[in-house]
């Protein structure tokens, strides 16, 4: 014999346990990733490539803190790598826009000193197949 139909409940204790469990899992996964990756440049093994016009004048590992001088069009430019981030420090250009641009640390980021004809770009030395740790773009 068939019993009367009863609508199941909206929310039960197992529901709460399921939601809390998954929520804790998500939050801990993000916390772990956030703690593990304080510095993208240093952890990913990226390189700084410095170009004078089209010619590459130097490659530097972002893992080690250093400061060096590159001869630009107007004179020597000092570039500093500190904590996996790259910044222009002393440049002979009149407006110092490159110094005010701040620092870069992610793959593909670029700093330019236009009057000196200098370009500093962060690259991944791995071949393209292996360096897809980050999404370039997504489309729908």
């Amino acid at each position: 014999m068939q019993r009367a139909f009863r609508l199941p409940p909206l929310f039960t204790t197992p529901d709460l346990l399921l939601i809390v469990g998954l929520g804790v899992l998500t939050v801990s996964a993000y916390s772990y990733r956030w703690l593990k990756l304080p510095c993208p440049g240093r952890d990913a093994g990226l390189q700084l490539v410095v170009q004078l016009e089209k010619e590459v004048v130097g490659r530097y590992d972002l893992a080690s803190d250093t400061s060096f001088t590159v001869d630009g069009y107007l004179g020597p430019v000092r570039i500093e790598i500190s904590g996996g981030a790259v910044s222009f420090r002393d440049a002979p250009c009149p407006q110092k826009i490159c110094e005010k641009s701040g620092s870069i640390s992610r793959r593909g980021a670029v700093l330019v000193c236009a009057p000196s004809h200098l370009l500093a770009r962060i690259e991944d030395p791995l071949p393209p197949r292996e360096n897809r740790k980050q999404l370039d773009s997504m489309t729908r």
Binding site: P8, L10, T12, P14, D15, L18, I19
Partner: peptide, 14 residues
């Protein structure tokens, strides 16, 4: 199998 134990929200989340 789980509906009286799980509610609408649990089934929907799954």
């Amino acid at each position: 199998w789980a509906m009286p134990v799980l509610g609408f929200i649990g089934v929907s989340v799954l």
